[in-house]
């Protein structure tokens, strides 16, 4: 285990972490403001991926087409999010959280069923577009340029989201809703519209994430599950609803996931869950404690 191995594991971990964050971003946003643990998030992530795949096929011709396809997928998923909000989430705003959980799980079932009906259960694999299909070589270090692309996307989305929440009036409004939506409504904020907008943005993020993470993995109807679980863990460790926390937690999880191949090479994946359990036993409120988004 030389220095190169460690550097490689770190870069890999960062890329994995950013992939987790791309999924966790929308999840934590919707949790912070609507207090919903959205089981269907992974399914919409998957729908975004399938939509992109339908647009670009297995061998996308350029990096721009790749990104545009992800955005188109995101917009379509955002529209689906609006419908979901209208039909399901809005009606359940004031009921017990167990029912919300089962409702989003029902949406998850419908989505994965529809994906199977439309696209079948066969696996598809997608190559990265030219430009990010190679690797950057620094000395002995070999970095896939697609990893760099994912890291850049993750950081860009984090910076954009963090800026929007902390520096703009929309963000301040959402923060006040997250703290106390009854009081926010009393102050003249249009809470229902803000909640619907949050759902739409969250679903947009899910759809875009699906498109961006499409390359270098097998696309199948179980794609949503694996990411959803890691994203859940990132959201919980980050402190439920905290975007910054989720960002740092995703990086931590990514690095543990990739370095566990160095520490426990026989059992990939195990270290991540053990870390989650130990972390939550020590710090159940998450990284920065509970304080809204």
């Amino acid at each position: 285990m030389g220095l190169i191995d460690i550097a490689f594991a770190l870069i890999n971990g960062l890329a994995t972490g950013m992939a987790i964050f791309l999924v966790a971003a929308g999840l934590t946003l919707i949790f912070g403001i609507l207090k919903i643990l959205n089981f269907a998030h992974g399914a919409f992530f998957m729908i975004g991926a399938y939509l992109s795949y339908t647009i670009i096929g297995s061998n996308p011709s350029s990096i721009w087409l790749f990104v545009v396809a992800a955005l188109v997928g995101g917009v379509v998923v955002a529209a689906l999010g609006y419908v979901t909000d209208l039909v399901v989430l809005r009606r359940l705003r004031n009921v017990d959280e167990a029912f919300m959980l089962i409702a989003t799980f029902a949406v998850l079932l419908v989505c994965s069923g529809v994906v199977k009906l439309i696209w079948g259960v066969n696996y598809a694999s997608i190559n990265p577009p030219p430009g990010i299909d190679g690797a950057v070589i620094i000395g002995n270090l070999f970095i896939p340029s697609y990893s760099i692309f994912v890291i850049v996307c993750g950081v860009a989305i984090f910076v954009g989201l963090d800026f929007a929440i902390r520096r703009t009036w929309i963000g301040k409004m959402l923060q006040s809703i997250a703290v106390d939506n009854w009081m926010a409504a009393l102050l003249g904020i249009n809470v229902p519209v803000a909640l619907t907008a949050t759902v739409i943005v969250s679903f947009l993020l899910a759809g875009v994430a699906g498109g961006l993470l499409l390359a270098n993995q097998t696309l199948s109807p179980i794609l949503g599950d694996s990411y959803l679980l890691l994203a859940f863990m990132a959201v919980v460790i980050g402190g439920l609803g905290d975007v910054r926390g989720a960002f740092i937690a995703a990086i931590l999880l990514g690095i543990i996931e990739s370095s566990s191949s160095l520490i426990m090479p026989d059992m990939p994946g195990m270290a991540t869950y053990l870390f989650v359990i130990l972390f939550l036993l020590a710090k159940p409120q998450g990284l920065f404690g509970d304080h809204g988004i």
Partner: peptide, 13 residues
């Protein structure tokens, strides 16, 4: 394949 999930999901909803 897939139909059972859709039906169960809709029934649950």
């Amino acid at each position: 394949i897939g139909l059972s999930e859709v039906v169960i999901g809709v029934v649950l909803l």
